[in-house]
Design a protein around this nucleic acid. Structure first.
Length: 571
RNA sequence: CGGGCUGUGGCGCAGCUUGGUAGCGCACCUGCUUUGGGAGCAGGGGGUCGUCGGUUCAAAUCCGGCCAGCCCGACCA
């Protein structure tokens, strides 16, 4: 490609609306432009990178037996109604009507439609199957942000496995796990796999692939000593036993005028350190007011509540509701003596005695509470958010918390969708069996952004060769000098002939501008051809990563660069 | 959805308080000089000031509605 014929609109300044590094660099480098909130056009460079990522994913999924489809983006609402997601998903699903008034939905994901097609499977002999495609999804996120990191419209690779039983699903799941590790390594991200919540997808087990970045929106707990790693939506930790002093008497009321917070109570009373308090939260779950109990210094992780109760219909109770149900305002609540409401308690409270909690009367608290004796717990459920430094549940080492970007997610779906849509096959005994499914996604744009987050420096992006928009740039120092241009052109053609994806910067610009653009865009190799070097029969080769330069005889440049790129391409 | 903020040429911004000929830097075009790390000089092109309405002799500027975008939070496969 000749730069003079390409469309590469680079910008000198960061766009004002960008925060994330990948957002700034992708816009400045001329890879993407925003159309509206959460919606980006890929410019030619962005398209080339995305295509290379797609190519790598395609290779890896084909390698584990995947066959490629392409499913529509506009779906009949009826299918989404049959699986129940028309109602359960909410406003994220963009609904439209056609001219006849029929309900349509924009694809949020493609479980429904792939499962529908799987209805043609008839025999166990047809299984296993592994189907995938690259297709646009639209999710009407309330708040898009971070450039390509969190958008409303995006292309995803999603694959779906169909098996006769869970053993088959396990095999396909494990194969995806390996394939995903390969993909993320090849695109230059050091992705870690973590246990995850399955959210509204349903299913029994799921693993997320995470890339560390301050621009991320998820947190993971990761053990430095063993292989434990989990999304904080799911992570747990081992807590040391708390040495409570025994209090034999029944709970005792004591006045706490004006005290409404755990911190204030800890401040006021020596016997009420935060871990000695019971935090009481009032939530409305599926319309039912419920008390949630946590240790005073612990925080609620709402996703655990959703996963544990099996409903996403949860919200904190309003102050009026609380007053009506308990007779006190938040800050003075407790579960002692409460029998008319369900009480869900975190296991960190199990067996604790001599604790402090609200008395359900403003300005009064109770001390000497024995959880087992004084509180009617209807259900124990891990609800707390893990904190950095707590002990790994497997090996006891201190857990670290990292901010990450979710770049891939694989789910064991089971029969949720095949059951809803009636997808069965006959097994060897002629018995009808529900097909067992898995689903596996990678967001292409997010993977590109994550690769930038992981591969950049102060002057721009430093793409891994495998996904760079071009693997090399030939920079013509003096484009209006025929001899220089001719020499550069010869190297350019030589690289093309050697199979290198190369662009020649033949524009009549000052060298500094061309160097800066090359580094901003992040081509892995730069060959600089100028009159000064040519006078000595030399050109300069610079590797983007590390920016180490070397001077080579003109005649050797093609072979050296081609060899270096060939080696890096397959890393 | 709650809170904060912003819409002025392709990009980044000033002008708005105190109404009166729309301005700066970058980018772009022409010429000359320059050319191995974001050149200099000279000349030039380009803007319904987000949008609709109101106030006024007069609105980028004051008032109101709407729209869009950004940030924090809630939310999120």
């Amino acid at each position: 490609m000749r730069w003079s014929r390409a469309y590469i609109p680079t910008l000198r300044d960061d766009p004002t609306d960008a925060e994330a590094i990948s957002h700034k660099l992708l816009v400045r480098g001329g890879f993407i432009r925003q159309l509206m909130a959460g919606s980006y056009s890929l410019l030619p460079l962005g398209k080339r990178v995305a295509d290379k990522v797609i190519g790598i994913i395609r290779q890896e999924i084909e390698a584990i037996g995947g066959v490629e489809f392409e499913l529509p983006v506009v779906h009949p609402g009826e299918v989404w109604k049959r699986t129940g997601r028309w109602d359960s998903v909410g406003d994220e699903l963009l609904r439209i009507k056609d001219r006849r008034g029929a309900d349509l939905a924009l694809a949020l994901t493609h479980e429904e439609i792939f499962t529908l097609h799987a209805g043609e499977l008839a025999s166990y002999r047809d299984l296993p199957q592994l189907w995938y495609h690259f297709q646009t999804k639209f999710r009407d996120e309330p708040r898009a942000k971070g450039g390509l990191l969190r958008v409303r419209e995006f292309v995803m690779k999603d694959s779906y496995s169909f098996d006769l039983d869970t053993a088959g699903l396990d095999v396909q799941f494990d194969r995806h796990f390996e394939a995903y590790k390969n993909v993320f390594r090849r695109i230059g991200t050091d992705a870690v796999s973590v246990e995850a919540s399955s959210g509204v997808m349903g299913g029994t087990e799921s693993i997320e692939f995470m890339v560390r970045s301050d621009s991320g929106e998820d947190d993971i707990a990761i053990c430095p000593a063993c292989d434990y790693a989990a999304n904080t939506e799911k992570a747990t930790s081992a807590l040391p036993a708390f040495g409570d002093q025994v209090w034999k008497a029944p709970p005792e009321r004591f006045p706490t005028p004006g005290i409404r917070t755990i911190a204030a109570l800890q401040e006021a009373e020596g016997f009420a350190s935060a871990p000695q308090q019971i935090k009481t939260l009032a939530y409305v779950i599926d319309g039912q007011m419920t008390l949630l109990l946590l240790r005073g210094d612990h925080e609620l992780m709402e996703q655990k509540l959703i996963d544990g109760t099996g409903t996403a219909d949860i919200r904190p109770a309003h102050p009026e509701e609380i007053r009506r149900a308990l007779g006190a305002d938040p800050g003075s609540l407790g579960a002692v003596g409460v029998s008319h409401l369900p009480v869900i308690a975190d296991p960190a409270l199990e067996g604790r005695t001599n604790m402090v909690t609200g008395a359900n009367e403003d300005d009064w608290h109770l001390r000497g509470v024995d959880v087992a004796r004084d509180i009617e717990v209807s259900r124990w459920l891990d609800l707390r958010k893990v904190k950095a430094g707590e002990a790994c549940p497997r090996c006891g080492a201190a857990l670290a918390l990292d901010r990450v970007i979710e770049v891939g997610h694989i789910f064991k779906l089971g029969t949720k969708y095949t059951e809803a849509l009636g997808v069965t096959v006959l097994d060897p005994d002629g018995i009808e069996r529900l097909v067992v499914m898995g689903s596996y996604g990678i967001g292409i744009g997010r993977a590109v952004a994550a690769a930038v987050e992981a591969n950049h420096d102060e002057s721009g992006i430093a793409w891994p060769a495998a996904i760079a928009p071009y693997e090399a740039v030939v920079t013509v120092v003096k484009a209006d000098d025929p001899a220089t241009l001719a020499a550069a052109d010869e190297i350019y053609r030589g690289l093309l002939a050697a199979g290198v994806d190369v662009i020649i910067n033949d524009r009549d610009e000052r060298p500094g501008v061309k160097f800066a653009d090359a580094e901003l865009i992040g081509f892995p190799y730069r060959v600089t051809v100028g009159p000064r070097g040519l006078a000595d029969g030399e050109v300069e080769v610079m590797r983007r990563r590390g920016r180490d330069k070397s001077t080579l005889p003109v005649g050797e440049a093609v072979a050296v660069v081609a060899a270096a790129i060939t080696a890096e391409r397959t890393l």
